[in-house]
Design a protein around this nucleic acid. Structure first.
Length: 550
RNA sequence: UGGGGUGUGGCCAAGUGGUUAAGGCAGCGGGUUUUGAUCCCGCCAUUCGUAGGUUCGAAUCCUACCACCCCAGCCA
């Protein structure tokens, strides 16, 4: 819940200037994912940019499924994308599908053909590749390049009518096989695919390419600013070439920005898909995945992800964001949002030897800084558990938790003084004995005593047992994306499961609440949780200056 | 060897000819603290890829060079 001033960037500056100078009245953007996979953190950047800009300047932003290639697309992805965009906190002006423009796109293809700007090529894919030339040598004109408009139209109609098999022919823009920009060497506009489309069904057996469909779809929707990543920069001349030759209702402009690169993560859909298909993760929403669904399940908040997108900025510069920026953004947001409670992950029994009464009920706020979050009751009694790491028989320099001969405060409870311990045959501590100081009850302490350390605990009798899943980075290298096959680089400790003893509130099913296990980290219940079987996912640890010093 | 881009502190990122080069993250030092968390304060680029040049004055203009990224799918 950090309040921040939105940082500026070159696109925002440009739009602001255009509005000031009256060049643009209302800005219209769009987020155009292809429904061939789940959205990831890179898409989050684009979503925040497109929807954020529209919001900021009082414009509109559409969600458009760029569904021009039915081979890899499915309804599952369409549904997931809608859910993810909404969850991030954005609402689209219109929900669009490029497939809904297929009729118009087809008419315009005819327009190109009739004007001699497109032709049907019957070269095979291999021939086309061979004749495209290289980066330094021009290509060779197709033998079919100079057909008459009538011939082209007849052939194109036959393509549409299903008379030609896949690969037998394709529609190409007639630009120049000698262009230094290889994207302009008569790019493909339509291809034959005898498969049904998730939305258009079996209505078509020819489908437009991205290059042909995108700009025209932008124009149909009245998009003013068509934002995309840098790899499309070389396509912009083609984008404009088409808009100029077609009777489109508006003139969108494409602006490119650099894509997000995040340390330790892969954002290639192909590689993410491979992780899912080969079972290296439990699914697209595995909490270790950089997908929006994965981050949601892990317990990242939409506001935290949006804060991250603000912090990373938007430029045209290649960039690799450190993981700490993401984690820091999540922590900063969750700090003000999470309910704080106590959980012990590695229990060590503590007996308060001078406690001979019934358990005392302590009223404890869910968030000390936010009384509006309310409070709950925690029992304190004779038998407790603390975290094993909070007791050291032989403390190192600077350790200020519980030690032999020392004192420590049990958070929200009392100061306790060390009395003794027992060990098993291996020398492992089995129990610790302490005496509590009745005059030091939290918020009623008149003893004047000060102790260096405060540790968390749970009351044995009322504690509940839960499962915890602790996640670490999926890959053991910072640049898994630069490997063709990152699977061998998967971090074997990326998921560690365990049990925890928690105070009563944490034992109840509360799937929507963000929690902080005090002194440990932020946690959220996994959707697999059931009444009586609660599973917590660790979203992110707390910063730990002591652990770092060691 | 073709075309298109990009180079500001460890990582991001403002800045577009004129005070001491914003800010964030990380780091470091200190304070507060019943979370070694949060919060607060301070420190952290005589220098803007390199070398020249123009100018009273340049990260911002010019020239050359260097490095890195993208492009040869009927993928997007």
């Amino acid at each position: 819940m950090t309040v921040s001033v939105k940082p500026t960037n070159f696109i925002r500056t440009k739009i602001s200037d255009q509005i000031k100078q009256g060049q643009v009245e209302e800005i219209v953007t769009r987020f155009p994912p292809e429904p061939n996979g789940y959205l990831h953190v890179g898409h989050a950047k684009s979503i925040c940019l497109n929807f954020g800009l529209a919001e900021e300047f009082g414009g509109r932003c559409n969600l458009r499924f760029d569904d021009t290639n039915p081979e890899k697309e499915s309804q599952e992805y369409i549904d997931a994308i809608e859910e993810d965009v909404r969850w991030l906190g954005f609402e689209w002006s219109e929900l669009c599908h490029t497939a809904d423009y297929f009729d118009q796109l087809f008419e315009w293809a005819l327009h190109l053909i009739r004007n001699g700007d497109a032709y049907v090529d019957e070269q095979s894919a291999e021939e086309m590749r061979a004749n495209r030339g290289t980066l330094t040598e021009p290509g060779v004109d197709s033998a079919y390049r100079d057909r008459t408009a009538e011939e082209n139209e007849a052939l194109f109609l036959r393509m549409r009518d299903g008379e030609l098999p896949e690969g037998a022919a394709g529609l190409r823009a007639k630009i120049s096989m000698a262009a230094s920009n290889v994207n302009l060497r008569d790019p493909a506009l339509y291809r034959i695919r005898h498969i049904s489309h998730p939305r258009a069904g079996d209505q078509w057996c020819i489908y437009p390419t991205y290059d042909y469909a995108h700009g025209q779809s932008d124009a149909i929707e009245g998009i003013t600013h068509s934002l995309c990543t840098l790899e499309f920069e070389d396509h912009r001349p083609l984008y404009e070439w088409l808009l100029k030759r077609l009777p489109v209702p508006s003139r969108p402009r494409q602006t490119e920005f650099s894509r997000l690169e995040l340390e330790g993560t892969v954002t290639s859909k192909r590689k993410l898909d491979a992780l899912v298909q080969n079972g290296h993760v439990s699914g697209w929403d595995d909490p270790r995945m950089p997908t929006i669904a994965g981050m949601r399940r892990r317990g990242y908040s939409p506001e935290g992800i949006r804060l991250f997108c603000e912090r990373i900025g938007v430029t045209r510069k290649p960039n690799t964001i450190e993981l700490q920026v993401l984690e820091g953004s999540i922590r900063d947001d969750l700090e003000g949002r999470a309910h704080k409670a106590m959980a012990v992950l590695d229990p060590l029994k503590v007996v308060v030897t001078n406690w001979d009464q019934d358990p005392l009920e302590l009223d404890v706020p869910h968030h000390p800084g936010r009384p509006e979050f309310g409070s709950r009751v925690i029992p304190f009694g004779r038998e407790l558990y603390i975290d094993r790491s909070d007791f050291e028989p032989e403390p190192p320099e600077g350790f200020f938790r519980l030690v032999p001969g020392g004192s420590v405060r049990l958070k929200y409870g009392f100061i306790v003084d060390y009395e003794g311990m027992t060990k098993d045959a291996d020398g492992r501590v089995t129990e610790v004995y302490v005496r509590y100081d009745p005059k030091t009850r939290s918020r009623q302490d008149q003893s004047g005593r000060k102790v260096k350390g405060t540790i968390h605990w749970v009351h044995e009798e009322s504690a509940k047992e839960v499962d915890v899943r602790m996640y670490d980075r999926l890959f053991s290298v910072t640049d898994p994306g630069s490997y063709d096959d990152p699977v061998p680089l998967i971090n074997p400790d990326s998921l560690i499961t365990g049990k925890a003893l928690v105070e009563p509130v944490l034992g109840a099913l509360m799937p929507d609440t963000y929690f902080q296990f005090e002194r440990v980290g932020f946690f959220k219940q996994d959707p697999e949780s059931r009444d009586g079987h609660i599973i917590y996912n660790r979203s992110v640890t707390l910063k730990d200056a002591w652990n770092k010093k060691k």
